[in-house]
Design a protein around this nucleic acid. Structure first.
Lengths: 223, 223
DNA sequence: ATTCTGTATGTTGTATACAATATTCTTTAA
DNA sequence: TTAAAGAATATTGTATACAACATACAGAAT
């Protein structure tokens, strides 16, 4: 009966296709902060009607990637220095919390995955490709976050991460930061493997602290 | 020139009117978990077209109050025991964080407001009206949360609070819990006024712990 | 030159129409 | 009686039309 079970769940509403397209464009910087998003133009460009474009833009607004003024349309969200600090402050608290929970809840299988992810991150650093480094960095942290088993926590952190993705990538491109990044990952890995939640939490906090300093100094050199 | 400055910013898109209407209906239990939300019916009931109803439903989905299946419509979100625990786990961490931050950042003016809110909560308990108690309870916590000055933190916590609003109200109606609630508020107030962040954080955590125990035992009496 | 006003244009907000898919009910066959 | 199939209905997804408002620009009055 299920020999040829081609997946019938592959349907994606157009609004979601548009949403993912625009989201990627924003996160990769193709659409720059402050740029206006006009429904008709985007609809024509993407070959759909205004309706799915509207719905996608609204979704992006609720995710915080787009800001809207009633009757004046939408634009790619600008993040202020204060906004960035606010996001990072919440992330620091939640990342530390994740690290502490991970000490209690991580499974042996996930421990192996985490070790592997740590190794692969270091290899990526050796290779030196920023995109690869960013990918492996995300993978490492995702294992920790997912090991908490708390879906609400996971989605909350992912939303925060999305807010600063654009700026974080600049941070990763700065090669001088990478040895420190590696060191911090190792400390965090070691603390989690030893179920030392105090040290794990502290390591996670320091990790974000350094990110914050670096990102802020790049975006707001005077501040 | 500004003698007669009638407010021109009063315009609210219909989608937001519908959104607030539906949101309130869900939070107050008029629309019950699992109930289907059908665009045409709601549109007719509210005297608008499908478009603003659709947009309002999508907004509710992103806020987590509604779940959608593509091409099958939306229904009021059901929260599972796991989902409730997950929300409360994140809230506990963030509420504790807020309490700690409040110790550092609360202004003298906010301190007075907090004292007043604490008193008013106790008066509400004496009067015994659940709705009033709930309102004063929210007001007390809002002062603490707002005193952090971190907008992202504020909106994140408010979203979490919204998820459990329906169940929390049942908790407040349980009169046997109220003396404990008052005691916990006093402890939290005292810790913040004395800038004792460790104690404030601990008090916030205990506060949520008790909520969790009480809410869970009411919704899932066997669990 | 500057400010105000009116008009033309562009954009969003809402309503509606049509298409595609889900659901329900009836009918038919075993 | 039950199960399956098919038609009828309901509902969502998308496109388009129209109205309301915002913006930009040109011209007139000061």
């Amino acid at each position: 009966m299920t020999e040829l079970s081609l997946n019938m769940d592959e349907y994606l509403p157009l609004r979601d296709v548009v949403f993912h397209t625009l989201r990627r464009a924003i996160l990769t910087g193709q659409l720059k902060p402050g740029e206006r998003l006009m429904e008709i133009h985007l609809a024509q460009k993407l070959g759909v009607s205004r309706t799915p474009v509207r719905e996608a833009i609204h979704k992006l607004e609720l995710e915080g990637l787009v800001t809207m003024m009633p009757r004046r349309g939408a634009q790619v969200a600008q993040i202020s220095e204060k906004g960035l600090k606010d996001v990072l402050e919440v992330r620091r608290a939640l990342d530390a919390f994740c690290a502490e929970l991970a000490c209690e809840r991580i499974t042996p299988k996930e421990e192996e995955e985490l070790k592997k992810a740590c190794r692969e991150f270091e290899e990526a650093v050796k290779i030196g490709d920023p995109t690869l480094i960013a990918t492996k960095d995300v993978a490492f942290h995702d294992i920790i976050i997912n090991s908490t088993g708390n879906e609400r926590l996971i989605s909350t952190i992912n939303n925060l991460a999305e807010q600063i993705y654009r700026y974080r990538f600049e941070y990763i491109k700065d090669a001088s930061q990478r040895p420190r990044l590696m060191e911090e990952h190792r400390t965090l890995l070691d603390a989690i493997l030893n179920k030392d939640s105090a040290r794990a939490g502290k390591a996670a906090r320091i990790h974000i602290d350094n990110q914050e300093i670096s990102i802020l100094s790049q975006i707001y050199p005077e501040g």
